[in-house]
Design a protein around this nucleic acid. Structure first.
Lengths: 209, 209
DNA sequence: TAGATTGTTAATCGATTAACAATC
DNA sequence: TAGATTGTTAATCGATTAACAATC
């Protein structure tokens, strides 16, 4: 059993993934840790340490093959797991997420959208019909999504969360302001937009970064 | 000149702010680091260390006065600076941000919204009229906003960013996928939604948190 | 072979936790 | 005064950087 990878490393992987994707588009075949470090403004040492958490992806005297490295990182980030996701709460935030996020690129299929508002039920977004919450348990049983995107008000979020955990959803991308203490076996990523905005204000005030 | 506060501490402040706001609503007058630590699931030691970066807010034998502490943290987070913000790019992401984020609570005034699409120009959102990008320099000169929220496509983001820096904007809340290497004196908070989603997928795959 | 660059160990740095004296 | 809890120092833990031997 190999040692657990620090979460600091994990949080950097998506950024590597983006940069490597861009390098492929730009026609790069190989890249050294030094060259990548200059582009990304991190140390070459950190890059090598990070990649070595997962085993050696490079070759002495050569560097890293961009394509191979991109595939390795994609695989670590579960792109090839092809998880299905559902989105719950089709307000303007849900709408923005459904429209803006490139799910494909991350190997994710947005499989269903749910709301309780009759005005939006039946509308189509990227070929996905918005369904009524009444249909959600049936939908989950049939389609077995792993991910739920929570873009509903805090007041309704907890009840929906509990239901979805019971139905077997494993990961939650939480845009509601609900604070969750994740149960065993459940993964959560909280997007507290306001927290980020406040951090920005602190930086401005203190003339940082 | 006091020692710079670690950014790990800063990133925790908005969460303290949220919890303290809730405690006030719940009628709490005082709270000890131990009690707060149980609610927030962090160590009491960390809480005391964090607060002491800014000077002693508590009292031995008593704990912390919730109201006073909330005000101190608000002030550290520049809530009383009353920064003005503009939002650039009124697509569905811009729309969602303008509608969902509680700017007031953070002492921020969303003062103007800009786009280039004639279909949305002139519409009103929370009493703010969407203006054409042609008016942005004039608007900035008159209103002197400090913050710009970038919710426009990557392809257009760089040019707008450069213009706004020139016009005196100090902080950018960046939802575009543009990578920015911040110039001297400019603060940036990047919201790479996709990065968070990929991190979630990693956690699910590895059964974490 | 010579040059380049990784993989990996060791050194440094920073952040978290523990402990306890100070003090309300 | 006794009890509680902070502020703060010291110990531990973890993450980053530096250095260099291994090797392509």
């Amino acid at each position: 059993m190999k040692k657990q990878v620090p979460s600091t490393v994990i949080r950097r992987l998506p950024r590597y993934h983006r940069y490597l994707g861009d390098l492929i588009k730009a026609g790069y075949v190989r890249i050294s840790s030094r060259e990548l470090s200059e582009k990304m403004r991190v140390t070459a040492s950190q890059i090598r340490q990070d990649f070595n958490c997962f085993g050696g992806f490079g070759q002495q005297g050569y560097g890293y093959n961009v394509n191979a490295l991109f595939k390795e990182i994609s695989s670590i980030l579960a792109v090839d797991m092809h998880y299905k996701a559902i989105l719950v709460g089709y307000g303007n935030l849900g709408n923005a997420i459904a429209n803006n996020v490139n799910f494909d690129k991350r190997g994710i299929e947005l499989a269903g959208i749910f709301d309780i508002n009759d005005n939006v039920i039946g509308t189509k977004i990227r070929d996905i019909e918005v369904m009524h919450m009444d249909e959600i348990t049936n939908f989950i049983e049939i389609n077995q999504p792993k991910i739920a995107i929570l873009t509903l008000p805090k007041s309704e979020a907890k009840a929906v969360f509990d239901l979805l955990v019971k139905m077997g959803i494993k990961g939650f991308w939480n845009f509601s302001n609900m604070e969750i203490n994740p149960p065993e076996g459940i993964s959560i990523e909280n997007m507290h937009l306001g927290d980020s905005l406040m951090t920005l204000c602190y930086k401005i005030k203190n003339d940082l970064q």
